[in-house]
Nucleic acid binder design. Structure first.
Lengths: 210, 210, 210, 210
DNA sequence: CATGAATGAGGCTTCATTCAT
DNA sequence: TATGAATGAAGCCTCATTCAT
């Protein structure tokens, strides 16, 4: 009846997590019923509740896990002590590239984390938002340090800048990966590398600097 | 049994629209029940269905109306033939300012249009997405014209630039107005003017250009 | 907005009756909403309730009116004093013919009276049933008189016979006029005359008597 | 809160089917609410939807099952190669008797299948109609064979005859079992045997042949 | 006579969750 | 661990009916 063969019990939770994530990503949190998830996973309703206390908890679990992975990637940024703007641009470029690549390889997670979590209930939504905040914080730290190193003008408002840049990057990931309609099946027509470079360049030099 | 009948007649639909919008904005489309809306509006459940064929139609109506209003504001941008980068920056600044101001004055609409529509069903979400697309299109048109006027470097990829800038602006509006948690009750701590200027500056000159 | 031109007030009730009948016939009593009726009639909800106390009353009114008309036709039967079986067959033939013709000319009424009334509420259904009973009674009277005149065998059970014949005729009208699926738009492929003759013949001589 | 859980398991669907059928038969499809059914069955509303996808599906299920049972009975008819009219009459008599007996033992099903299905929605009504069609087809087949065997006049219109006879039988079952008002609680005052014989006789020899 | 906005009960269905097995 | 039947609270929507104008 069910298609899976002898799923090891340890893998069961991961399987449910994967299925749930893909359905959350495809249809949104509210429109995804636990019954849909277990149907696709080939297990019974009760099993779901053996691994998760509730539907909400499953989403929270997914988001927390994803957030951890994402931040791991992002925290590798700016670890060197740059000395020139060019070096800093290079580092930023690399960071963006890692971000875009991670996003490309974790589409489902990304859409839930950055977008679809919005439609969910407050706790879920909050968890998703924290990802954003974390990214913004990192960005701000980096800008501050750069300014201390005299790599950037002293009169800039670092807080606003980091907000602007973070939103640019995150929003761009959304429309790049999922198109204008946030369609999970959209196929990007530009490479992660190109996007990362463009974003870094715009952030550093603006549209006039090309 | 009922305490109010035919109190306002013509304004009833607007009242329901307002209440629905504020609840969609506060709790999201799915979590808002028609029964919640009518309760706050002080009318019976049936009355809602006198004015709207369905809950979905009411959201669509709100979005379509809002989209029209917003685009009206945005289409006023770049109507002059700029001759220098400085003039163009000024125009952009003004456009962003109008946008940020409109957003500030239409918080509920904004959160639905730009964000919360995401969690809703496809038709609603699609309608909301069109707003984004319209903004991006306008941005792209403007950049193209500027390039033709030799105000911008010829080697830039206009399509990507407009995506980046649009996402920066829209994303920034979100976090400026609603904070990192997209809280409808968040109070911005920076003026619309400052945000608009910052965004325009970043877009034109990047972080290095301050 | 509405398509009718200056309906005289006296005709209004008839108009509503007609529209209601056609919708009851097409969709059945329960599936027909008062709002459907008034929409097609081009009047407001309130108007309906000026002419009828309730939806049920409107159906009752239609049925009573129709019943009266139908029975008027049927009561013309067997008014002569037949002397032979052939004469009686002729008379029966004529009666059936009148019945089938009336049915053909009053499709909507017929389907409500004989069939669709069944799905309605008890009072309506009861009213419709009375038509059946009236027909059966008439049939029984006729058979009894024929037996008294020695036109028929003395050992027959008149009550059962009239039930059988009435059911044959009424059921046949249904399937003749509306086809096996009781489709109001079905077109009969046999003439009323042929049907009437066949029914009369079968009733008199059975399948062996052709 | 709830007093019964998993009491019978396998028989739950049958129980729901039985209750639903009896209520459909008593009050008609539209007037029967799912809430009525589950109340009588002593289960929760949700349980109904565990066994049936919808109210409509439950009616369809009942009808399909009933149709199968009924046709099983009817298809036993005329299996022998009759040689004389008398033998054929005997066979017909037996068939009618089986039909009347089945009807008597399945009152609820019968009223839904032959009558009350009419008031329901199209799919249900269609399913019920097919029963009628099946019976008529069988009747026609039998008549045709009899004519080929020279047991019946060659000039008869078999199609019309079978329509007439089928309607007679079915209509008669209705009024015999449920009385003129189609009352589910009506008690027949004539035996199935007597009815079957009368119907067969009338069909074969007409009212004159007694 | 006529309108049409308003009511509110009630119907069908979904779904997160529980729990005996 | 796993099942799947069962629960019951909502949710969306329909519709007969009322009534101020």
């Amino acid at each position: 009846m069910s298609s899976q063969r002898k799923i090891e019990t340890v893998e069961r939770k991961q399987q449910l997590t994967d299925v749930a994530l893909s359905q959350f990503a495809l249809n949104g949190y509210h429109k995804t019923a636990v019954s849909d998830v277990v149907k696709e996973a080939g297990v019974s309703q009760g099993t779901f509740y053996w691994y998760f206390r509730s539907k909400e908890e499953s989403a929270l679990y997914i988001i927390e896990e994803g957030k951890r992975e994402l931040l791991k990637v992002l925290e590798q940024g700016y670890r060197n002590e740059e000395a020139t703007v060019e070096e800093m641009l290079l580092e930023t470029n690399r960071l963006f590239y890692d971000f875009f690549t991670f996003a490309e390889e974790n589409r489902n997670l990304m859409i839930l984390l950055l977008i679809k979590g919005v439609g969910a209930d407050t706790p879920i939504h909050k968890a998703a938002s924290e990802t954003f905040t974390a990214i913004e914080k990192a960005s701000q730290r980096n800008l501050e340090r750069a300014r201390e190193l005299n790599l950037l003008p002293q009169n800039m408002d670092v807080s606003i800048q980091s907000t602007l840049i973070t939103n640019m990057v995150i929003g761009t990931i959304s429309s790049w990966l999922f198109g204008p309609n946030l369609d999970i099946n959209y196929k990007p027509d530009v490479s992660a590398e190109k996007m990362a470079t463009s974003a870094a360049m715009l952030g550093f030099y603006g549209i006039t600097g090309y």
